[in-house]
Structures are given as structure tokens and as C-alpha cells.
């Protein structure tokens, strides 16, 4: 009788330990999933081959330009539009800030702002807009098809959203990335305003330009 009780107790103790082990595993698992899960996937690192600098557009002086006109310089490319009141000026001001921190090396960089709203962003509008941010900044526009092709080559997503109350009845949605392309026009890296200070981005860009990374 006593031995049966001991066996029973042993069984209970064993089951309890199983429960404890299950709880530990479940909690650990949940913690693991949470720690890993909250990390956002890295932005569009589809690989070097997928993102190319290929375009034929009109610059803010009214001249037709292609990627060939920017080869030989490191390119910082950002897609946006001038009706964008928040993300675009914030990002362009950030790029200007980065350029100012490149000091002597700024000549080796071509900062490019490509509009995704070409029907409203004419070369004249782009000229006034980009010059307010930085004298080195080039604004590019073109036909809807040319802009779509440029965005496609950079794997940039944008869309027109109907919004009755917005000017002209629409808003644009877009990805706010800054692409760093090599002097050969190959994808080097992608940055986002707000993820590092302008100083940090400038240091990073300089290191890559000088082959330290």
C-alpha cells in the first residue's frame, strides 16, 4: 500500500516536472519568437543584381539624362514628390545634411531626387524645389512611363491613392529609401532617414568611397 502511494507520488512528481519543462519551453519559445519577431525585415535587400540604376529622364534644367551621365560618381538616389509635406522634405533635408558632412569629397557624389509624380512635378517645379535643399541636388522627372521604368530599375514601389480632399484628388504613397549606388552604377546599400544620424551616414558613405568597407 505504501509502495503504491510512493509510486503514485513519483508519478505525480514526474508529471509536474513534465509540466514545468513544457512551461519553460513555451515561455522560452514565446520569448524567442518575440525577440526575433519584432525585428523588421531588412529593407529591399533583394541583392545587388536586382537593383540597377537605369533611366532616361529630364533633369531640372530641362536636359535629357540617363544613368550614364552620373557614372563615375557615387549616387545617392531618392524617389519622392513635391506635394509630399512630410517624409520627402525631411529626407531631402537629411541628404543635404549628409552632403554637407562629406566636405571635400562631395564632388565625388551625385545626389538625385526622382519624382514619382511627374504630371505635377515639371522640370521648372523640380528646379525650384531641389535648389532649396542643396545646390548639388539634381531633380529628375519625365513621362509617367519613363518614371515608372526608373522606379522599376531601382525596385522602388509607389502608387497613386485617390483622396478626395487632397490637392488634385490624390496622394502618392512611396518607399522612403535612399539608395547608394557605386560609381559604376551598381547597388551598394540602402539608407533611411531616421535610422542613423546624418553624421553616421556621412561616415559610412565616406568609408565606402574610400574602400574601407
Amino acid at each position: 500500500m505504501a509502495s503504491t502511494k510512493t509510486t503514485q507520488l513519483r508519478r505525480i512528481r514526474f508529471s509536474l516536472w513534465i509540466l514545468v519543462a513544457a512551461a519553460v519551453l513555451a515561455l522560452g519559445g514565446a520569448y524567442f519568437v518575440r525577440t526575433i519577431g519584432v525585428r523588421e525585415p531588412p529593407p529591399v535587400t533583394v541583392g545587388e543584381a536586382a537593383i540597377r540604376s537605369e533611366f532616361s529622364l529630364i533633369d531640372h534644367n530641362g536636359n535629357r539624362v540617363t544613368e550614364a551621365d552620373f557614372l563615375g560618381r557615387w549616387q545617392l538616389v531618392f524617389f519622392g514628390f513635391t506635394h509630399c509635406p512630410d517624409v520627402c522634405p525631411t529626407t531631402l533635408a537629411y541628404i543635404a545634411n549628409v552632403l554637407d558632412r562629406l566636405s571635400g569629397e562631395v564632388e565625388r557624389v551625385a545626389p538625385i531626387f526622382i519624382t514619382v509624380d511627374p504630371s505635377r512635378d515639371t522640370p521648372e517645379v523640380m528646379a525650384e524645389y531641389v535648389q532649396a535643399f542643396h545646390p548639388k541636388l539634381t531633380g529628375l522627372t519625365g513621362s509617367e512611363a519613363e518614371v515608372a521604368a526608373a522606379a522599376q530599375s531601382f525596385r522602388v514601389y509607389y502608387e497613386k491613392m485617390e483622396e478626395e480632399t487632397a490637392p488634385d484628388g490624390y496622394l502618392m504613397a512611396h518607399a522612403g529609401h535612399i539608395y547608394l549606388m557605386t560609381p559604376e552604377g551598381r547597388f551598394e546599400d540602402v539608407f533611411r532617414e531616421g535610422e542613423q544620424s546624418a553624421e553616421e551616414m556621412a561616415t559610412d558613405v565616406l568609408a565606402r568611397m574610400n574602400g574601407k568597407q
Binding site: 529593407p43 517624409v87 487632397a166 518607399a175
Partner: peptide, 13 residues
Amino acid sequence: AVEKDGDVSRMKH
């Protein structure tokens, strides 16, 4: 408001 859908920012009225 700005809605972030992955990498895309959408302004939402």
C-alpha cells in the same frame, strides 16, 4: 497619420 506598410509610407487622412 503616416501608415508604414513594410517599406511603404502611406499618408492617411
